[in-house]
Amino acid sequence: MEATIEKQIKNAGDLVHTAEESLLEIEDLTITIDSVKKDLVKQIDLSIKAGEMLGLVGESGSGKSLTATALLGLLPSSLQITGGTIRLGNHQITSLSEKEMRQVRGKEIAYVSQNYQSFFTPFIKIGKQFVEVIQSHSPTKKSEAKKIVRYWLNKVNLPADRVFNSYPFQLSGGQLQRAAIACAILLRPRLIIADEPTTALDVLTGEKILDLLRGLQKELNCAILLITHDLKHVMNRSDEIAIMYGGQILERGRTCDVYQNPAHPYTRLLFQSRLQLSKEVTKELRTIYGEPGLIAEKGCPFARRCPYVFEACNEIPQIKTVSDAHWVACHAAN
């Protein structure tokens, strides 16, 4: 039983990445709490090609931030990767030593967090922290490093000189998040992980930040993993989306495919629960039944909140191909 499922997952995966080799490839990744042997992330598969953006969508507690931390090799010591592999380019991240991993972080994988307030160390001037990043990865003269920093600060539309000499608390939220992005792309990484980069910002600033990210991506030809709980952030930006719930990927595919033909009940509910301007103003806003933390222990994780739940949902659903490069894990889908 297990084996067949695994095989199917593999097959589905093969369908998603077509001929072209992807930059980041996560296979069967499982993250476990050491003490209680509980899996927080279960056998997930993800991949991103260079120059593309993957939107990883899920509620809080779905395991999406944990996945990001695992990519960086920064899981807290109470959590462990108990299965699967992560490959970035030709690095097997899961088998790198701590020293090698440090060189990957910041240089190959960059990270932009939700909490822009404490992205930078509060009592060190921003410019100094940029220079520190450059010098941590390659011996660079200070004047040389400064030049690079100025270039990227200008790139993200910040007044370079002022920001360089400011403490983090002297900048606004939007400015800080821009600075964080500048810091992330400083060494032209191949992958940027943006973990809810707009959640703490107001809507307009948030949109601008996402557009900025997308624009820079075109220039750097890097991959972006955009983690969010909000579908609208990824709908018209990302190339692919993956829907995550209870530590598992429920549905995954090209963004337009998923949008036009959401196959998993959870995905459909997510779309329906969005606020949108439409002609049918009277249309009732759908909410999803139950609490976000309600995760079924076995079988489909969404079973306890799913309106279409039936007996078979106690078993782990098989992977079904909806269309080319679009698959879903649901018993009810066809």
């Binding site: 931030s65 990001a68 931390t69 920064l74 807290p76 010591s77 109470s78 939700q114 973990d195």
Partner: peptide
Amino acid sequence: MKINVQMP
């Protein structure tokens, strides 16, 4: 997201 420093 925090690094939980273990304090047994």
